[in-house]
């Protein structure tokens, strides 16, 4: 029941001027940057968006100052297990999670600032063989983890002060869940993508697994980034980490797929291919916010797509000092973060 209806859209050519450099920060103590993100920060009554940078052994928070400068507020040291990724909690303030591990995630920690006693803390949230993790609205965190026998999918909640509240176990599908996405404007709906290219839908409040729908064999290893419901259909933005430039558009980097949750039938709505001139198989490391997607290409450039137009709208070539390694959209703004391995982070207005 999987139908594909993909209509190629001619590329006008990406426009570099659609990305405007706002500022740059450099963590001189960083040996090898592994991730970058943003978080809300409130210390003296005013709430501002701060940048979070992670290298293998520490996570730092940066506050904007006047004249496009950044000041490091604090660094959490994490010496025992390497940091793999930052897991932002979208609307939380003074709270951010991180995933640590060697090849796979073995531990999730909460990093927290308490304005009451002006103290910075970190605490263990979960450990095990963790396959996927995502921060949800309302200070919640969902993760999938595996033991030799079974998979556990769990939603944890945090209080404003960073305390862990009761969790909710979700019914796990047989196959391993590799990524999650909140269904926008539906607080209790969550989707995930699995190793066998299925979309699963949960009711987070009851823990029920509502539906499992196959994405299609032609695009393996799909990762869900964003989901929303409209007119009775569930629209899911998927990325294909191993994209390849193709004239027939048969191997796009991002796709928007419409699912009918009642019948489990699906249809490709729009696809976004690699910009021309990036031949060969690419490993994409990307991020999606609203209708915009950004990804680092194997060439060291960053491409930005408008997912509704199916077009690449901006291309940041590799910087003179080195290739881009990371890209993330900033929470609650139209800023794109672009990071290099040496700890340099550039903020662009899109």
């Amino acid at each position: 029941h999987v139908a594909e209806q993909l209509t190629p859209v001619p590329l006008d050519g990406p426009k570099e001027e659609s990305l405007q450099l706002l500022s740059k920060l450099k963590d001189s103590s960083s040996s090898c940057a592994v991730d970058v993100s943003t978080m809300w920060w409130e210390a003296t009554g005013s709430r501002e968006l701060c940048v979070v940078t992670a290298c293998e052994s520490s996570v730092s928070i940066w506050k904007p100052l006047a004249s496009d400068c950044w000041a490091k507020i604090y660094t959490w040291e994490l010496a025992e297990i390497p940091v793999i990724q930052i897991v932002p909690l979208p609307d939380a303030c003074n709270l951010v999670c991180i995933a640590l591990g060697d090849l796979e995630i073995g531990e999730i920690r909460l990093l927290h600032y308490s304005s009451e006693n002006d103290s910075f803390k970190q605490s263990l949230v979960k450990n095990g063989n963790i396959k996927a993790v995502l921060g949800l609205k309302d200070r919640r965190l969902v993760s999938s983890s595996r033991t030799t026998q079974e998979q556990q999918v769990e939603v944890l909640s945090f209080s404003e002060t960073g305390r862990s509240k009761d969790g909710q176990t979700l019914m796990a599908p047989e196959e391993t869940v590799l990524a999650f996405a909140e269904v926008e404007w539906m607080r209790d709906a969550l989707v995930g993508t699995t190793v066998v290219n299925s979309i699963v839908v949960w009711n987070v409040k009851t823990g029920q697994l509502l539906k499992k729908m196959h994405i299609g064999y032609s695009y393996p290893a799909s990762i869900c980034h964003r989901a929303y419901s409209d007119s009775g259909l569930l629209f899911v933005v998927l990325s294909h980490p191993h994209a390849k430039e193709s004239e027939s558009c048969g191997n796009p980097a991002f796709r928007v797929v419409a699912f009918n949750p009642k019948t489990a039938r699906s249809m490709g709505v729009m696809f976004s291919s690699l910009p021309p001139g990036h031949p060969g198989r690419q490993y994409l490391e990307g991020d999606v916010k609203d209708a915009s997607a950004a990804a680092v290409l194997t060439s060291g450039a960053i491409a930005v797509w408008d997912l509704l137009l199916g077009q690449c709208t901006a291309l940041l070539p590799p910087a003179p000092e080195g290739d881009w390694a990371l890209t993330r959209w900033a929470t609650g703004s139209t800023c794109l973060l672009a990071g290099q391995r040496d700890g340099t982070v550039c903020l662009y207005r899109y």
Binding site: N203, Q208, N260, K262, T263, R265, S266
Partner: peptide, 23 residues
């Protein structure tokens, strides 16, 4: 997209699937 290929659509799919799915 042509919604007719996707079968009958319900605006309340989430509530209906929650009522049908095992607890």
């Amino acid at each position: 997209c042509n919604g007719s290929d996707l079968g009958p659509i319900s605006l309340n799919w989430f509530e209906e699937l929650s009522a049908e799915a095992p607890p």
